[in-house]
Design a protein around this nucleic acid. Sequence first.
DNA 1: TATAAATAGGATAATTTTATCCGAAATAAA
DNA 2: TTTATTTCGGATAAAATTATCCTATTTATA
Lengths: 144, 144
Amino acid sequence: MFSKACEYGIKASIFIAINSQEGRRVSPREIAEEINSPKAFTAKILQALVRQNVIKSVQGAYGGFEIDKKDIQNIKLSQIVNAIDGDNIYNGCGLGLHSCDENHPCPVHDKFIKVRAELKQMLETTNLEQLALDIKSGVSFLKV
Amino acid sequence: MFSKACEYGIKASIFIAINSQEGRRVSPREIAEEINSPKAFTAKILQALVRQNVIKSVQGAYGGFEIDKKDIQNIKLSQIVNAIDGDNIYNGCGLGLHSCDENHPCPVHDKFIKVRAELKQMLETTNLEQLALDIKSGVSFLKV
DNA sequence: TATAAATAGGATAATTTTATCCGAAATAAA
DNA sequence: TTTATTTCGGATAAAATTATCCTATTTATA
């Protein structure tokens, strides 16, 4: 469904959100441990999320990655997915046609509409605050 | 969403179904032209579908790929997807956790349930006959 | 100002996916 | 039985994704 990079990006963002809520910056090493991902690769993904203004980084000693507290509830999964995988997953054609729409649909166009609308809606209405809350309360998990 | 191989596999199966309904066998060359895919790669995918008993092949002169007429309405998209991509797309964890279920859910487990159920249901209820019909009547398209 | 601790970023490697090529085996028909 | 046609299968290659390593740059603090 999502690329590995995107999976790591989502989990990393949740972990950063949790820590930012408590005023703590985190490093790629810490993140990678917590979400069970390769450190250097995760660092690259974090850099991409910074460039796309999803998260912030502070260089130098006592630096790390963070998210402005007030932004946490406004960052939607869709922003993270878009930043890493683009919007092809819910806007592209399910069978890879270059142009696929009502006028020139692929064989599964109609059947896919519901699935993709559901996915899009889910990604656009789920924010980091909700996801962070479940992790903090032990309801959901970032690894294993 | 699906791999390229799976996209080709689905489109190829539809084209084979259409031709089998008219008692015609088709070659990888013909299929690749019709669905706009690389010929040799498509041939490999067809071989895989044969091994998994989704389609049939006849070797030698006047041979080619075909599907038993009576099977066309019974072959579901899910069989093709399963044969090529496996069932990870609707059974695996959305964030790649090795074990993710109600007792140990990933952060998006609940939110994904609907999307994946929708996808699974769609794949399991869509058969090749329906899809072939739309192509034949010019309602949907296999390429461009 | 020097030092230590961080992210940034380039180079490279490993793995997976996608794609190509070619000879072997099968088979219908001449 | 020969020939032409066709799938099968192995070997490679190309491209994309995933992963690692090393150095440069930034920055707080001693």
